[in-house]
Amino acid sequence: MDQKYPFSQSEAGRHQDLNKLTNNGKTMNIINIEHIAKIYQVGSEEVHALRDVSLQINKNEYVAIMGPSGSGKSTLMNILGCLDTPTHGIYDFTGVNVSQMNDNELAKIRNKEIGFVFQTFNLLARSDALHNVELPLIYAGVPGSERKDRAREALEHVGLADRIHHKPNELSGGQRQRVAIARALVTRPSIILADEPTGNLDTKTGEDIMALFNDIFELGNTIILVTHEEYIAEHAKRILRIRDGLIEKDETVANRYIPKKNGASKI
């Protein structure tokens, strides 16, 4: 691993700092959020899901977003994932202001730039693993043979080369989540957005999945992890704690938990 990726953990950290200053001193933020708020109208009542949130996330960061239910963390995740737009404020994503985009523009961004991993896997039940992974490429307009190759490659990377024609109900929970991760990776997105990815898995399987995320991170990907479990959050290098629609704390993980490689993935 060290030969492939010349930076040790601390060096990788420094590398990030260098990254920030490239491009003529302009910071290379993938995500730049300024004073966003999200207000829902529930009946006659206004609900402030997010009050005033500003944050930056750089390339190749590993960020966990934590918070109790009702804190606004889901809302923040939806906005980060371009599934929703803020009521106020600016969301600059990969240099593009997406805060006022319409449905179709957002769909395009999600398709190209964001890989989603959900707690409940959210695979298409009637399609096999290969087709599930192909799906984002279909929407991106990638031609058939290239699409199949890339999907197969992504499945190989998550260690499911021998399961490509299995349907979700023929796979274990961990395998399903791997398919979902392959689907998230296949478009080579700018960020991977994982919403409680281990929530429906047992501890052992969850740990495997976290190891896989670590591998993906070490390949240079940017990962945003939404969780309410402290020990899962500690896999990340930075934790954002949300409460009552505000960022309560933005901390660097001093003693990051690095999962053991278990050989399940080929990365």
Partner: peptide, 9 residues
Amino acid sequence: IRKAIGAKR
């Protein structure tokens, strides 16, 4: 799911 991974209207 489809919309999340990029299906347009």
